[in-house]
């Protein structure tokens, strides 16, 4: 399946902002994060198509996956 993966804040360092990527069917959000060399403990929020998702969730073809570190403000 082809996904649009978006990274934010310092997850972009030495990686990318946004990239089209292919993964085998059934790949979980968690597997994608690990494949990018991101420490799971640093992950704050993940969203698929602008909706919050679990690390165990499996995206579908053409989904957009956004991965954020723990951030805050206000």
């Amino acid at each position: 399946m082809r996904l649009t993966v978006k990274l934010f804040a310092y997850f972009r360092d030495n990686r990318f902002k946004q990239r089209e990527m292919d993964f085998p069917e059934g790949t979980r959000v968690e597997d994608i994060i690990l494949s990018l060399g991101i420490n799971l403990e640093e992950v704050g929020v993940t969203m698929i198509n602008s909706r919050h998702c679990e690390l165990s969730q499996v995206p579908k073809d053409h989904d957009q996956l956004a991965i954020f570190p723990a951030i805050g403000g206000g």
């Binding site: 934010f8 804040a9 310092y10 640093e42 954020f68 723990a70 951030i71 805050g72 403000g73």
Partner: peptide, 20 residues
């Protein structure tokens, strides 16, 4: 960890996540 992100990006780190 949120304090660290606040120091690096300020509260404006929120633009992208609220947009998303």
């Amino acid at each position: 960890p949120i304090s660290k992100a606040l120091a690096q990006y300020g509260t404006n780190v929120l633009v992208n996540i609220i947009n998303e």
